[in-house]
Computed example of a mutant assay.
Amino acid sequence: MNDMLSFALLAFTSFFTLINPLGTMPVFLTMTADLDAGHRTRTARKASIVAFITIVIFAFTGQLLFNFFGISVNSFRMVGGVIFFLMGMDMLQARLGKVKVKDSEVHTYVDDISITPLAIPMICGPGALTNAIILMEDANTIPLKVALIASVVLVMVVTYLILYSSNTIIKLLGQTGVNVMMRLMGLIVMVIAVEFFFSGLKPILQDILFKS
């Protein structure tokens, strides 16, 4: 039970920091500025659902991709660690990732922004997909797999609530508060990155030394 709770906490923390719904808020507000409350709510809900489905698909098919391309899990851990570390650096400096879209083009895909760019890649980006594949590989029992999926569901619910309440949250936190939260999450991502990198490097080095 303790192992399952620890794994669930790791999954929730890593997904929440990598998805970074607080960093997505300004983009969400900008791209839904011309929508009424009902359409904005539906956009946030659809984006969260699409992101959840994408993460789950990658979590369960990641190993097949490894086998098809001949990629080792440990190598993927190391690359994932590098990706997370770079993301954490950006977050630590409070650089919000924003989608570059011309004002004249926003209205042409406003009905589809919940899928692109909000769900993919703003909510469900490379970091979250990498995290899903790696954690599913670690989830070697049914309870751990259930804990992983439950954690993703919880993160998506929280993401939806944050986007739904984005106007209020930004007013309460202010730009300074948003930047502080971004930096704190950046630190957590960087710690996770170091853990991932060395958990992949250690078995590779052991294999090299053992063979030699």
Rank of each mutant, 00 (worst) to 15 (best):
V189Q: 01
L10M: 15
M89K: 06
I19E: 03
L163F: 10
A132P: 04
I120Q: 00
I53V: 15
A128P: 09
D36I: 00
I169L: 11
N74Q: 14
P121C: 07
A37F: 06
S199H: 08
H39W: 15
G177C: 08
V101Q: 06
V110R: 09
T168V: 14
P26V: 04
T13R: 11
G97E: 14
T141M: 01
V50C: 09
S166I: 01
A33K: 05
D112V: 06
M136C: 07
F16E: 04
S114P: 06
T168H: 13
A44Q: 01
G23I: 02
M190T: 05
V56K: 05
K102P: 13
L92E: 03
K202L: 15
I192Y: 00
L10K: 09
I204M: 12
F28T: 02
N2D: 08
L184R: 11
R183T: 07
G200A: 04
N140M: 12
N2M: 11
N167W: 09
L173N: 07
F197S: 00
V79K: 04
L10T: 13
F68N: 10
T116Y: 10
D36L: 02
P126V: 01
F12L: 14
I83L: 12
Q93K: 12
T159Q: 00
Q206M: 11
R95L: 10
K171P: 08
L86G: 01
A147H: 03
A59K: 02
T54D: 00
L65P: 09
V158E: 07
I208M: 13
A94Q: 03
R77C: 01
G177R: 05
T159V: 11
I83Y: 00
I113A: 02
I71D: 02
M78R: 04
A51M: 11
V56C: 04
F66S: 07
V191G: 13
F196H: 03
V27H: 04
R77N: 05
P117Q: 06
D3R: 09
T168W: 11
A193L: 06
V82N: 10
G174A: 02
K102C: 10
H39D: 15
F68M: 14
S151C: 07
G88P: 02
